[in-house]
Amino acid sequence: MQVPASFDYRRAESVDDALALLERYGDGARVIAGGHSLLPMMKLRLARPEYLVDINDLTELDYLRLDGDRLRIGALTRHRKLLESEVVEHFFPIFTDAERVIADPPVRNRGTIGGSLCQADPSEDLSAVCSALAAEVVIRGRGGERVVPVHEFYRGPYETAVGVGEMLVEVRIPVRHRAGSAYEKVERKAGDWAVAAAGAALALAQDGRIEVAGIGLAAVGADAVHARAAEELLRGREPSEELFAEAGRRAGDDCEPVADNRGTAEYKRHLAAELTSRALRRAAARAAAGVEAGAGV
């Protein structure tokens, strides 16, 4: 079986301890939480950190908190917790949709939201979800914290705004009224990375028009996490089949998918459009259902 090259291991006892270790070891250090992206890369010897800083004991980063008009998710929150959270499902069904199709149950028992975002794989689902929801992330270093919009967090494949000696500690998601969201993914089998995926989050104004629209895409290009043109089209418009189809087309036109084992570029572009329309349709239906049920959202 494949085994990693040698490294040194440190288990952090607190966030401060983790930051001190990361600072001390600099470039050669990697944070490990669930490990399901990092360890396979290390076994294939594509990643060779000199130090692993294990943050699994930092239970202070494992939380889901509704705090005023935002949901705060600790970076060490496991996929399974997100999947099973009723609060998450109520306010952000896009998360629940996505978590259902992220990897598989044993992996979801270990994998964390922070790990998923920091891996910054262009096929990764939660980056698209967070993009659709216009999330912010909190990055902490020894010098303090900074809050970064998720659109600025992602710096290209496998690159994020987290610098040397820093770590992601929290994800913040704005709670909106009259909102609905949904995630659509095509995979070749359960547990596969996306062939393509699209997430949509809508919030409606009092008059039923779209007030806020977010669309996040996965696996359709290195820089296509965020479908801006489609979002712009939607703002201020009345939800309709035609509008969602047009938004889908824009999302498809805007992305730069590459052909691989999972599919051709043409197909992925088609999926970006098709799945964006589908996600918008379901997001709008959920928003409407929420308004109808008088859920106060």
Binding site: Y9, I32, D54
Partner: peptide, 10 residues
Amino acid sequence: VKSCTVLAAM
């Protein structure tokens, strides 16, 4: 959990 992707240390 998948024990091939957990370090004994962890």
